[in-house]
Nucleic acid binder design. Structure first.
Lengths: 222, 222
DNA sequence: TAAAGTATAATTGTATACAAGAATACAACT
DNA sequence: AGTTGTATTCTTGTATACAATTATACTTTA
């Protein structure tokens, strides 16, 4: 969990700041801090056992991400994600994740393809086990590998954060056994298209995968 | 230039940090700091007349934006934008800016519509004057108003940063008189579609506007 | 009692001090 | 000469101190 790579470069490799960032981001995404909550810097620094300086740096990053709002001389307020935000994320993902799949098919390396196959195998295993925690991690790996293989830092950056934002609702979706199996089938189909270098098919399958994913999570919104 | 609004909330309203952020961001986008340059915190704090603390907070934000890379205990290195990045940005914009236009048409307020009309009028004026600097600012206002009117913070955030990233190349494009007139015509058409509440037309026109914009800037890449 | 004003406390913004790690320069050695 | 080891310097990472702003509590006054 130290961070994912971009063309050999890593994000969040700063052990301390990276941990604080991940911690606070997850605390917001998972609802520990709710919309409107004020994030007190001193309190956070006590809780996390560091000084205010790294806390502030992380808060500024979260501000840029849009998860919190910073009001000068007053404080940092949690904004979180609304139902509408999540709907928007899926609408945008439907539009651009297909492109990522198409590009990935064109540019994926043998190593990445092997890793994708491995991910599918693990997904098959954990789907039968109904192991939601592992499935979510594998789902992250599956999609992020495709983002990375697309060889576009803009796609990687944009889609990774979107994908991460909706992790909580995806988590709910995996709890439904039928849904988990559907995800596996769709991933398998996408993997086949990619390994056969069928760009158009990969794109179409990915688009419908995201559409289906939205249908699956739609019920758990609100 | 203090910052743009989101539903009444503002970004970069912190006078000091906002200025430092804008300054450094522009210095990177405009090529003062080139890819590979190391940003020395002490040096920057001397140049900008502030301490290292706010400098570091801004560097962390630029890191999240992807404009710089931070290597622990070594420093912050400029990454900038490559030709490929800019091509990617336009490919993504083609896909999602149409959605923003459609949504904007559905949800735009009378005040925003009036502002859009005003922008068009100013654009007409400065196009005849060949005033590139003003045209760039008006182009920013035009597109950002539509992002805002779309009523989606995800669209606003994503598209605003993309639009800002390509400001440098757009600047070149406006210098060509024919191009400036073409932009004006396309903006006029989009405005008409929006004011007539023709969602589909607004979407189609915006998509072709972005495609044309890419054609116009394509030559000045590299 | 309600409102306004003031003093105090709390919180953020910035600067500085110190710690830890990395780069550099130079000397010693083979 | 080249290499290795060490000391020094430089830079980043973190903590703390102080300034400025805001919130709160309390008192005063009508």
């Amino acid at each position: 969990m130290a961070g994912f790579q971009i063309d050999g470069e890593e994000l969040h490799i700063h052990s301390l700041r990276g941990k604080i960032f991940t911690q606070l981001e997850n605390d917001i995404l998972r609802g520990k801090y709710k919309t409107g909550d004020v994030l007190n810097e001193t309190k956070l620094s006590n809780e996390l056992g560091v000084s205010r300086t790294p806390i502030r740096e992380v808060l500024r990053q979260l501000e840029l991400e849009g998860l919190v709002i910073s009001i000068p001389n007053k404080g940092t307020i949690v904004r979180g994600l609304t139902k509408e935000d999540i709907e928007d994320i899926y609408e945008i993902r439907v539009l651009i994740e297909g492109v990522a799949a198409r590009r990935a098919t064109e540019k994926i390396t043998t190593e990445q393809l092997a890793e994708l196959e491995e991910i599918i195998h693990f997904e098959e295993f954990y789907t039968t086990k109904n192991d939601v925690a592992h499935l979510i991690k594998l789902d992250n790996r599956f999609h992020e590998l495709i983002y990375r293989a697309s060889n576009s830092r803009l796609l990687l950056r944009t889609l990774s954060s979107f994908h991460h934002y909706v992790e909580m609702v995806r988590n709910e979706s995996f709890k439904v056994g039928v849904f988990a199996h559907a995800v596996l089938d769709e991933h398998r189909a996408i993997y086949s298209a990619i390994s056969e270098k069928n760009c158009e098919l990969a794109e179409v399958l990915m688009v419908s995968h995201i559409k289906n994913a939205f249908t699956r999570i739609e019920g758990s919104l609100q």
